[in-house]
Nucleic acid binder design. Structure first.
Lengths: 184, 184
DNA sequence: CAAAAAGTTAAATTTTTAATTAACAAGATT
DNA sequence: AATCTTGTTAATTAAAAATTTAACTTTTTG
C-alpha cells in the first residue's frame, strides 16, 4: 500500500519536472537550439551530474545522440565536463544559474555577430571606396556607392553598443543598472 | 567603353552588398532564423520597399517562398507591410535601424520565455505542493519534492529580471545606462 | 460581369537535419 | 598482452523542414 503511495509520489515529481523540462526546451527552441538538445539541458538542470549512459537512460535515446547533444550544449557554454571520482566515465553538469546561462549563451552569439558583421562591413566599404575614388566611374553609380557606404557606416554604432552590452553583462555592471530583485 | 565601366561598377556595388547580406544572414542564423529568411531580410535591408515579385526576382526563388519568408520576418517584427501608391501589389519594408531590430526581435522572444517558463513553474509547484502537504506521503519523497520546489522558486528572480530588461529596452531607459556612441 | 492579376493554401518533391546502428579507437583492467 | 569499457566517428536510415508546382481564392479592372 505504502509502496503504491511512494510510486505515485515519485511519478508526480517526475511529472512536475517534465512540465518544466518541456517549457525550457520550448524556450530554447526560440533561440535556435534543437528540441532534443533543449530537452537534454532541461533534464540535466534537475540532476547533479550525469554520465552519457545516465542521459541515454533518462531520455531513451542512443549514446551517440547524447554525445553530440552534450557537445552542442558545451559549445553554448551551458554544460561543462566534471570529474567524479570513483568512475572513469565522463560526467557533465548543466549550468543551473540562469543568469550565467543568459550571459554565456547570448554574449557568445552577440560577440560573433559584432565580429562577423563589422568584418563584412569593412570589406564592403573597401570595395565601395575603390569605386567612389575612381575618377573614371560614372557619377550616378558613384553616388549610389556613396549612399550604400553611408548606410553601412550608420550601422556601426549599433555594433559598438552591442559590444558595450556584452561588456556590461560580463563585468556584472548591468546588475547595477538592473538589480536582481530577491523577493520574499 | 563607358558602358563597360558602369556595368563593372554596378557589379561591384552588388558584390559589396552581397558581402553584408551574407553576414547578416549568417548572424541571424545564430538566433534560429533560417538562412533563406535571413538572406531575404538582408536583401530588403538595402531596398526601400519591395513587392513579392521584386523579391523573387532578386533571390531567384518562387513567389510562395517569398510570401512565407516575408510572413516569418513580419512575425519577428522586423518587416512591415507598406502602401505604395500606383500599384495594387503589396509592398514590404525591412526595419533598417538595428536598435529597433534588436529590440523587436529579442524582447518578443524574452517575453515569451518569461511567460512560458513561469507558467510551467507555477503548474509544477502546484503539483509538488500537493505532495508536500500530503500527510500520507513518504518523508523521503516529500523532501525530494521540497527540494525541486525550492529549485524552481530560486529561478524566479531570473525571469523577473528578464522582464525588467525587456521593459528597459522598450522604454529606452537602457540607453541611459548604455549610451549609443555616435563616433566621429 | 468576365477576365486577369495577385497572393495564399495545399500537395508533392527535394533537401537538410537528426538519430540509430555498426564499426572503430583509446584507455584501463585483469 | 588480451579483453573489456567507454566514447567517438562513419554510414545508414528515418524524420523533419524547406521549396516548388499547381490549384484555388480574392480582388481589381476593363
Amino acid at each position: 500500500m505504502t509502496n503504491h503511495h511512494e510510486e505515485n509520489s515519485r511519478q508526480t515529481i517526475e511529472h512536475a519536472k517534465g512540465l518544466v523540462i518541456d517549457s525550457i526546451a520550448e524556450t530554447m527552441d526560440l533561440y535556435g537550439v534543437t528540441r532534443s538538445a533543449g530537452t537534454l539541458y532541461g533534464t540535466m538542470y534537475f540532476e547533479d551530474d550525469m554520465t552519457l549512459d545516465e542521459m541515454r537512460e533518462k531520455l531513451g535515446m542512443s549514446k551517440p545522440s547524447m554525445s553530440t547533444g552534450v557537445k552542442k550544449l558545451q559549445n553554448y557554454n551551458i554544460v561543462k565536463q566534471t570529474f567524479r571520482k570513483g568512475t572513469r566515465r565522463q560526467t557533465f553538469v548543466a549550468e543551473k544559474d540562469f543568469f550565467n546561462f543568459f550571459s554565456n549563451f547570448f554574449t557568445k552569439k552577440w560577440l560573433r555577430e559584432v565580429k562577423t558583421n563589422l568584418d563584412a562591413i569593412k570589406l564592403a566599404q573597401k570595395e565601395l571606396n575603390g569605386l567612389i575614388e575612381d575618377p573614371e566611374a560614372d557619377e550616378v553609380v558613384k553616388q549610389e556607392a556613396e549612399q550604400v557606404y553611408q548606410q553601412l557606416e550608420a550601422s556601426k554604432p549599433y555594433y559598438h553598443w552591442l559590444q558595450k552590452l556584452v561588456d556590461s553583462i560580463e563585468s556584472g555592471e548591468i546588475f547595477d543598472f538592473l538589480p536582481v530583485d530577491q523577493e520574499k
